[in-house]
């Protein structure tokens, strides 16, 4: 488990490839439609204690920590 880094563990300002997403089925499907799924790039713009801002495809999104901790990059 230790080598698994979530969005909350990595540095902002870089683009990462999504390795795994561990939410529920519905949420996974929703993220998929935004273009957020394994193998796709995700850019971390900024990071705070309880949230972060990412770029998926050409859109910016605010994610809470629960969701960003579920995205393994």
């Amino acid at each position: 488990m230790e080598d698994k880094k979530t969005l909350m563990d990595v540095e902002p300002g870089m683009t990462y490839t999504i390795k795994e997403i561990n939410t529920d089925d519905e949420m996974n499907a929703f993220l998929f439609r935004l273009g957020c799924y394994t193998g796709e790039p995700i850019t971390l713009i900024s990071k705070k204690k309880k949230s972060c801002i990412v770029v998926i495809k050409d859109g910016r999104y605010n994610l809470d920590s629960l969701l960003s901790n579920a995205i393994i990059v």
Binding site: I53, N62, L63, D64, L66
Partner: peptide
């Protein structure tokens, strides 16, 4: 219960 938050900016 897990309540994820995502909001497009």
């Amino acid at each position: 219960r897990k309540s994820f938050f995502i909001m497009e900016l």
